[in-house]
Deep mutational scan, measured.
Amino acid sequence: KKIKIKIKVYNPETKEVLELEIEVSEEEAEELAKKLAEELEKKGYKIEEVEI
């Protein structure tokens, strides 16, 4: 079964909002969402919402 992940991120420095969407297997979904959120935060983005 495929799971659709939508991530909306906001960069306070540039006032930019990015929306990302990807489909992955159920097993990958939670781990991938967690890794993406961590990487984006390292780059200065503030995570507003992660929906699985």
Score class of each variant (00 low, 15 high):
residue 35 K to P: 00
residue 45 Y to K: 15
residue 52 I to Y: 06
residue 4 K to L: 13
residue 21 E to D: 08
residue 17 V to H: 15
residue 1 K to C: 11
residue 38 E to K: 07
residue 35 K to C: 04
residue 16 E to Q: 12
residue 2 K to V: 07
residue 11 N to E: 05
residue 4 K to A: 04
residue 50 V to H: 01
residue 7 I to T: 01
residue 30 E to P: 14
residue 24 V to R: 04
residue 20 L to G: 02
residue 46 K to V: 15
residue 27 E to K: 04
residue 50 V to K: 01
residue 3 I to M: 14
residue 49 E to P: 00
residue 29 A to Y: 03
residue 51 E to I: 14
residue 4 K to S: 11
residue 16 E to R: 05
residue 4 K to P: 01
residue 50 V to G: 00
residue 18 L to S: 03
residue 44 G to A: 00
residue 16 E to K: 14
residue 36 L to F: 12
residue 5 I to S: 00
residue 49 E to K: 06
residue 23 E to Y: 13
residue 5 I to P: 00
residue 41 E to P: 01
residue 17 V to A: 09
residue 42 K to P: 00
residue 51 E to L: 11
residue 31 E to V: 10
residue 46 K to S: 07
residue 48 E to G: 03
residue 37 A to K: 13
residue 12 P to Q: 04
residue 52 I to P: 01
residue 17 V to T: 09
residue 8 K to Q: 02
residue 30 E to K: 07
residue 49 E to A: 15
residue 33 A to T: 07
residue 40 L to E: 00
residue 20 L to F: 15
residue 24 V to D: 10
residue 50 V to E: 01
residue 40 L to A: 02
residue 13 E to I: 13
residue 5 I to H: 01
residue 4 K to D: 03
residue 38 E to D: 09
residue 19 E to R: 13
residue 11 N to I: 08
residue 20 L to M: 07
residue 31 E to Y: 10
residue 25 S to G: 13
residue 11 N to H: 12
residue 47 I to L: 02
residue 27 E to N: 09
residue 3 I to S: 15
residue 46 K to A: 09
residue 3 I to H: 09
residue 6 K to S: 04
residue 20 L to A: 03
residue 12 P to V: 05
residue 35 K to S: 06
residue 41 E to D: 02
residue 34 K to R: 13
residue 26 E to P: 07
residue 4 K to W: 10
residue 24 V to C: 13
residue 20 L to N: 02
residue 46 K to I: 15
residue 28 E to A: 08
residue 28 E to C: 14
residue 25 S to T: 03
residue 43 K to A: 05
residue 11 N to T: 04
residue 42 K to Y: 03
residue 30 E to F: 13
residue 20 L to P: 01
residue 38 E to P: 00
residue 37 A to M: 10
residue 10 Y to M: 11
residue 50 V to N: 01
residue 19 E to C: 11
residue 44 G to Y: 01
residue 25 S to R: 14
residue 23 E to F: 14
residue 22 I to G: 03
residue 24 V to P: 02
residue 23 E to R: 05
residue 7 I to P: 00
residue 31 E to L: 10
residue 21 E to Y: 09
residue 29 A to K: 06
residue 41 E to G: 11
residue 8 K to I: 08
residue 32 L to F: 08
residue 11 N to F: 04
residue 42 K to R: 08
residue 1 K to E: 09
residue 35 K to H: 09
residue 51 E to R: 10
residue 11 N to L: 04
residue 10 Y to E: 04
residue 34 K to N: 08
residue 19 E to H: 13
residue 8 K to F: 02
residue 29 A to N: 01
residue 38 E to H: 08
residue 33 A to G: 05
residue 34 K to L: 06
residue 36 L to D: 00
residue 51 E to Q: 11
residue 44 G to Q: 01
residue 32 L to I: 13
residue 41 E to S: 06
residue 32 L to Y: 04
residue 40 L to I: 02
residue 10 Y to D: 02
residue 1 K to V: 07
residue 19 E to W: 13
residue 36 L to W: 10
residue 28 E to V: 09
residue 41 E to C: 06
residue 7 I to H: 00
residue 46 K to T: 13
residue 41 E to A: 11
residue 45 Y to A: 13
residue 34 K to P: 03
residue 28 E to N: 14
residue 39 E to N: 03
residue 36 L to M: 14
residue 17 V to F: 12
residue 29 A to P: 11
residue 52 I to T: 02
residue 14 T to I: 05
residue 26 E to N: 07
residue 20 L to V: 09
residue 10 Y to H: 10
residue 28 E to R: 12
residue 44 G to P: 00
residue 40 L to Q: 00
residue 3 I to A: 11
residue 49 E to V: 11
residue 43 K to F: 07
residue 15 K to W: 07
residue 47 I to V: 14
residue 45 Y to Q: 08
residue 3 I to K: 15
residue 36 L to H: 02
residue 9 V to T: 05
residue 5 I to V: 04
residue 49 E to W: 12
residue 45 Y to I: 13
residue 23 E to H: 14
residue 28 E to M: 14
residue 13 E to T: 12
residue 35 K to M: 07
residue 32 L to S: 07
residue 2 K to I: 09
residue 43 K to I: 07
residue 11 N to Q: 09
residue 26 E to T: 05
residue 2 K to H: 07
residue 52 I to G: 01
residue 1 K to L: 09
residue 35 K to R: 08
residue 49 E to Y: 15
residue 43 K to W: 04
residue 9 V to C: 07
residue 4 K to Y: 12
residue 7 I to F: 15
residue 34 K to C: 07
residue 46 K to R: 06
residue 16 E to F: 13
residue 49 E to R: 05
residue 46 K to E: 13
residue 31 E to W: 08
residue 23 E to N: 14
residue 1 K to M: 05
residue 41 E to R: 13
residue 3 I to R: 14
residue 27 E to F: 14
residue 14 T to R: 08
residue 34 K to W: 09
residue 47 I to K: 00
residue 9 V to I: 06
residue 13 E to P: 04
residue 32 L to E: 10
residue 9 V to Y: 15
residue 4 K to C: 14
residue 16 E to W: 08
residue 37 A to T: 14
residue 9 V to H: 04
residue 3 I to P: 03
residue 22 I to L: 13
residue 38 E to T: 07
residue 23 E to W: 10
residue 27 E to W: 07
residue 37 A to W: 10
residue 14 T to F: 05
residue 45 Y to T: 13
residue 23 E to K: 09
residue 12 P to N: 06
residue 41 E to V: 08
residue 8 K to L: 01
residue 12 P to Y: 12
residue 48 E to R: 03
residue 3 I to V: 14
residue 25 S to C: 10
residue 21 E to C: 12
residue 26 E to F: 07
residue 10 Y to L: 12
residue 26 E to L: 06
residue 44 G to N: 02
residue 10 Y to K: 06
residue 26 E to K: 05
residue 15 K to N: 10
residue 17 V to E: 10
residue 18 L to A: 05
residue 42 K to G: 04
residue 37 A to V: 15
residue 17 V to D: 05
residue 5 I to N: 00
residue 21 E to K: 15
residue 15 K to D: 11
residue 17 V to S: 10
residue 16 E to S: 10
residue 1 K to D: 06
residue 21 E to T: 10
residue 30 E to N: 11
residue 43 K to S: 04
residue 17 V to I: 08
residue 32 L to K: 13
